[in-house]
């Protein structure tokens, strides 16, 4: 039976982590408590990190959008700082689980859980997200493209606390598409995020098609060249996907839907329909918000 730790400062957290055995971090708990209950994981301590002020900050600077580890999906959806240029992030936040769970589920928790089908992962990857992790040895920034190492595995050290997710300020059009078994709450059978920056940089990312989320960086493709390179892009995505058959979908279905969603994103970029609905210039000035 794990003990319960609830530090109110980072220093206290680091001290509590020192020599106390294995500690799991509790943000929203929507994955952790399920896994603990099932006995799928065990640990000596659970550390509730939500009372550490550094984790409760959302900050929009001239260069970055920073979302503290305690921010839930619903809080992200309600935050004016997360503008339409971050459409994949907003749409993934709205697609994760259900509204009830999104009151608890956090962006960082979803990232750290590192499930191949985690909704936030493809969205964060196409937006060039990274996480800032801290330990008593200091802070480091880890690009999410280098973060995931396997099913429910990541590069974090046991004593590292993720403070926030960081995205560069950006302009562009993007989306997050999720296929599931029912209209209601379900994990993704397959998901595709796409972001086409105004400078022509195209990134696509897929969930639930490999042991880790899959990022495809196509570099800069001028808009005029998109139609000609449509097939090449789609085939590249299809070739990279290596899904399995499980209780949610067959391998073939995942491949087919991964392809279909990729087509929809590329076609939406070509015909201009993607991003138009929410298209508005980012006028949000740099500012800071703290969770209530």
């Amino acid at each position: 039976m794990p003990g319960f730790l609830q530090p109110t400062t980072l220093e206290e957290a680091f001290a509590l982590l020192d020599g106390k055995g294995e500690t799991r971090f509790l943000a929203g708990g929507t994955d952790l408590l399920v896994l603990l209950r099932l006995g799928a994981i065990s640990c000596d301590n659970v550390m509730d990190v939500k009372r550490i002020p550094e984790l409760s900050t959302l900050r929009l600077t001239d260069e970055t959008l920073e979302i503290g580890a305690a921010w839930t999906c619903n809080q992200i959806l309600a935050a004016p700082e997360v503008g339409s240029e971050y459409a994949p992030l907003r749409q993934a936040s709205a697609a994760l689980a259900n509204s009830l769970l999104r009151n608890r589920a956090t962006l960082v928790g979803n990232i750290c859980n590192a499930s191949p089908g985690g909704d936030m992962l493809p969205a964060c990857l196409v937006l060039e997200g990274s996480v800032v992790a801290a330990s008593s040895r200091g802070e480091r920034t880890i690009a999410l493209k280098d973060f995931f190492t396997g099913v429910k595995k990541n590069v974090l050290k046991p004593d590292e606390i993720v403070l926030r997710t960081v995205f560069p300020r950006t302009q562009g059009r993007g989306t997050y598409l999720k296929k599931k078994r029912i209209h209601g709450h379900d994990l993704a059978q397959v998901s595709v995020a796409g972001f086409y920056a105004d400078d022509g940089h195209l990134r696509l990312a897929l969930g639930a098609v490999a042991i880790t989320p899959l990022l495809l960086d196509f570099g800069v493709i001028p808009a005029a060249e998109l139609p000609a390179r449509r097939t090449e892009i789609i085939e590249a995505v299809a070739a990279a996907a290596k899904p399995i058959t499980d209780v949610r979908a067959s391998r073939e279905y995942r491949l087919a839907m991964g392809r279909l969603f990729t087509e929809r994103i590329i076609d939406g970029l070509i015909d201009g329909s993607l991003g138009l609905a929410e298209d508005r210039p980012c006028t949000t000035p740099a500012r800071e918000a703290v969770t209530a």
């Binding site: 259900n98 029912i182 209209h183 209601g184 379900d186 209780v247």
Partner: peptide, 10 residues
């Protein structure tokens, strides 16, 4: 999680 019954949205 693995056995899905209809929800409000279904």
């Amino acid at each position: 999680t693995d056995y899905k019954i209809p929800t409000f949205k279904d």
